[in-house]
């Protein structure tokens, strides 16, 4: 019968309308500033830079390779490479970002920078209250604002951070093993070390 569906629909919405006054569990929303939903682990909002150890500037994993800057679809990352080098997490001499800015107003939370980063240096944050009354400077986050400790990363994404730590530890162990092997066989190492190094690169 024509119009039957309309009546059924009207009955359904009327049920919702009346029900929302009677039973509180029907209400799907919370009153935001006072009430908050429990954080969801897979949330991603805006990237941050991970650092190890207590010092944020010394511990930054980022080596200013600028892959994320090039890959970023809306081009919201601005990196300036340092002139000098300093030891990174595994002790290798690396460049570091003298300047690392991300524009909140341009970022679209696509996570591509995280996926392309070979050093596990950039991750997605769950912090979403990024609004500010300064339209220009306030929305451009510099490396100090972006730097967050590995503990923080463990706090917001425990599963993912554990995987990342395991991977990093494995790589570090391999690098150490390689260094040890190189130290143990000093002279004929040139032809022998090469086939040994290959699988390490392939795995990484």
């Amino acid at each position: 019968m024509l119009g039957e569906g309309i009546l059924k629909g009207l009955a359904e919405t009327a049920k919702n309308f009346a029900g929302s006054f009677v039973s509180a569990e029907r209400l799907t929303t919370v009153e935001y500033p006072e009430q908050r939903i429990a954080p969801i682990e897979a949330t991603r909002v805006f990237p941050f830079l991970v650092y190890d150890g207590p010092e944020w500037e010394a511990g930054l994993r980022c080596v200013a390779c600028q892959i994320c800057e090039k890959e970023c679809p809306p081009k919201c990352i601005y990196i300036e490479k340092s002139k000098d080098k300093k030891p990174d997490a595994v002790g290798k001499q690396q460049f570091y970002p003298a300047k690392f800015d991300i524009d909140v107003s341009v970022c679209m939370s696509c996570q591509i920078c995280v996926e392309v980063c070979p050093f596990e240096a950039i991750k997605m944050d769950t912090e979403f209250e990024l609004s500010t009354d300064d339209r220009f400077g306030g929305l451009l986050h510099d490396r100090k604002q972006l730097a967050k400790s590995n503990e923080y990363y463990h706090h917001i994404h425990p599963t993912e951070a554990a995987e990342v730590d395991a991977r990093l530890a494995e790589e570090k162990a391999k690098a150490e093993a390689k260094a040890k092997a190189a130290a143990a066989a000093p002279k004929p190492a040139v032809p022998a070390a090469k086939p040994a190094a290959k699988p390490v690169e392939g795995e990484a």
Partner: peptide
Amino acid sequence: KGLARIQNRIGPN
């Protein structure tokens, strides 16, 4: 308010 209640929300308050 009415639309909010139909969608099981609270509406402007």
